[in-house]
Amino acid sequence: MGLNPDTSPVNTEDGVVSSMSPNWMTTKLDFLANWARANSLWPMPFGTACCAIEFMATAAGRFDLSRFGMERMSFSPRQADVLICAGRLPFKLAPVIRRIWDQMPQPKWAISMGACASTGGIFDTYAMVQGIDTIIPVDVYVPGCPPRPEGLMYGVMLLQKKIKGESFMDSSIRDEQLTDPRTGLFLPAQRIDEISEPFGNSVHQTRSA
C-alpha cells in the first residue's frame, strides 16, 4: 500500500509488531485510509448457489449495495477487495476459491454469506466443504438460508466497522495467510475435523453402511 511507510516489523515473533508507536500522525493516516477503504470496497462475487440470488437482489436497485461504495463488482480477483462467497462450496471448487483468494491483492477481506458457506449448512455430505473458513480466512459470517439482503448489508456494515478499526501500525493483519506447504492445508488437520463435526440436525442424518 502506498500509504504504508515501510514499517518493517522489528520482531513479529516476540509480539513486537512495529518499529513505530501510534501517534497523532499515524492515527490520522489510519482514519483516512480506513475511511477510504471501508467506503469503496470492490466485491469479488463468488456466487455458487441460491445465496447468490439474494446477493444479486442486494446489489440491485431496491437494496442498492452502491450506497456502501460496493456497486463496482470486480469480476477480476486482482482488482477486488472483498470476496463474498455466496453459496455452498463443493470440494471441487475449494482449489478455485483458494486460488482466487491468493490472487486478490492486499488489503483484502472475505465475507461468508449463508449457512452453507459458513458451516456446510444442510449439506453435510461427501461433496461439500464444511465452512469456507477451512479454505480461506473469513472476516464476517452472515447467517441465514439465504440471508435476507438486510442481513448481508448488516454483514457489510460490520466489515466496514472492522476495517475502520484497523491500523497500519500492525502490519501483521496484511500478512498473506497461505496454505501450509507441508500439509497442503490452510488450517491444521485437527481443526478442520473439529470444525466439520456434524451439529444440530445433521447429527441425526443417517450414515449409510
Binding site: F91, K92, A94, P95, V96, R98, R99, D124, T125, Y126, V129, Q130, T134, I135, T179, T183, G184, L185, F186, A189, Q190, I192, D193, I195, S196, P198, Q205, T206, R207, S208, A209
Partner: peptide
C-alpha cells in the same frame, strides 16, 4: 452406491487436503 457413506470414506481434513491439491 448404497454402500457409500454419506460423508465419504475419509475424514474432512483428508478430503480438504485432496481437494486443495487438485489443480483447478
Amino acid at each position: 452406491r448404497k454402500e457409500f457413506p454419506l460423508r465419504g470414506h475419509y475424514n474432512r481434513a483428508e478430503q480438504t487436503r485432496q481437494a486443495l491439491a487438485a489443480n483447478p
